[in-house]
Simulated assay, not measured.
Amino acid sequence: MLDTTPLITAVDRFADRLRSAPQSRLQRGAAAEALAVARELSARAQRVEAPEREPRVMPDAGIFAVGDQLAVAGRDLAVALETASSQELDEAVRCVRAAAERAFPSGTG
């Protein structure tokens, strides 16, 4: 069984930053970036769990809910990946970290 701690840690850090970010930061692109990665994680989880079905798209629940959407999608994927390859897990972690860096570049709030 894979240790999905790196994915959960990356997702939780990004989600926490989103939850504490001011509305202006969320509106300037952080929320859109987070929704995109949450949708990607959700689609990955669905493909692992049911590869024969087309993944459903996570809805846009608004800028104040995106941190929770990211957390849920990340944890769903972590559960799905527990029996998958380490490469899939590593790719998911890189995906989350890259999105977090685009949403909150180093040295900014």
Rank of each mutant, 00 (worst) to 15 (best):
R44N: 09
R25K: 08
I8H: 02
V48I: 15
A61K: 09
D12K: 06
E40R: 11
V66N: 02
D60V: 09
A78H: 01
R97Y: 02
A31N: 07
P22M: 05
A45M: 04
A92F: 01
A84E: 08
R39H: 12
D3C: 02
L26R: 13
Q46T: 06
P55W: 09
A84I: 03
P55C: 12
D90V: 00
A38S: 13
A43W: 08
E54S: 04
E82N: 12
E82C: 11
D68I: 09
S85H: 11
R56Y: 07
R44G: 05
I8T: 11
G67R: 09
D3G: 02
L70P: 10
R56Q: 15
G62P: 10
A38C: 11
D60K: 09
P22D: 12
T4R: 01
E88G: 05
R19H: 07
A32C: 08
A34N: 02
E101W: 00
S86L: 04
Q27T: 12
I63E: 14
P105W: 05
P51Y: 10
E82A: 15
D68Q: 11
A34H: 03
R44D: 12
R25C: 02
L70N: 11
G62I: 06
V48F: 06
S86N: 12
E91A: 09
L77M: 11
T108E: 13
S20P: 01
V72W: 05
S24G: 14
L2E: 09
A103S: 03
L70F: 09
